[in-house]
Amino acid sequence: MNKAQVVEAVVLAKKAKQLTWESIASTLGMSTVWVTSACLGMNSMPEQAAEKLCELLELPSEAKSVLMEYPTKAWSPAIPQDPLIYRLYEVVGVYGDTLKEVIQEKFGDGIMSAIDFSMEVEKQPDPKGDRVVITMNGKFLPYKAW
């Protein structure tokens, strides 16, 4: 099996078993966002997590090693058409330079790590309509001179 086949098998098994990403992550004892990302092929799973996932979803035995493979993180350079993903692109497009300025003013010249990183997605009830709360937490990595 290759990465795309395992991703498809995971998504189909999740649907067939009527599971949520949250319930899968809870079974694995890991973050919902991270487990979802790994199941969609963007992170490599530790052996125990891959084994638990294969058992939970009744995946073929060869899926375990594929889930553990280091991914090649690539995505289409085209602007996505899905409205939710497009809006996230829009947020970065509109506020990207602002975030860069504010982060560098507070921390110095550098970037936020996407490796030493965590992210949570929460639902905040609101009388005017529920709110999506996305918290990104990345280590600051200063640029160095040499």
Rank of each mutant, 00 (worst) to 15 (best):
A63N: 02
V94I: 10
K17I: 00
Y89V: 02
G93A: 13
T20K: 13
K15A: 03
V35F: 01
K52W: 04
K144C: 06
L53H: 13
C54M: 08
V102Q: 11
I103M: 11
C39Q: 00
L67M: 05
A13K: 08
K3A: 06
W34Y: 06
I115H: 14
L88R: 06
V133C: 08
S44E: 12
V6M: 00
E47N: 10
A16Y: 02
K17T: 01
K100L: 10
K15E: 12
Y89P: 00
E22H: 08
S37P: 00
N43G: 02
E122C: 03
L57I: 04
G41I: 04
L84F: 10
K73S: 14
L40G: 06
K144T: 06
V133F: 15
I85T: 09
T32I: 01
K73F: 13
P60G: 12
V132A: 14
M112L: 15
L53T: 03
G96M: 01
K14Y: 07
F107S: 12
I103W: 00
L12E: 10
T32Q: 09
R131T: 11
A78K: 15
E105R: 13
M136Q: 13
A38S: 14
K17Y: 07
E8G: 01
I85D: 15
I115C: 14
M68I: 03
K73I: 07
K15Q: 11
S23W: 01
G29P: 01
E105L: 11
M30G: 04
A13W: 08
C39F: 04
A63L: 10
E62K: 05
V94W: 05
N137V: 04
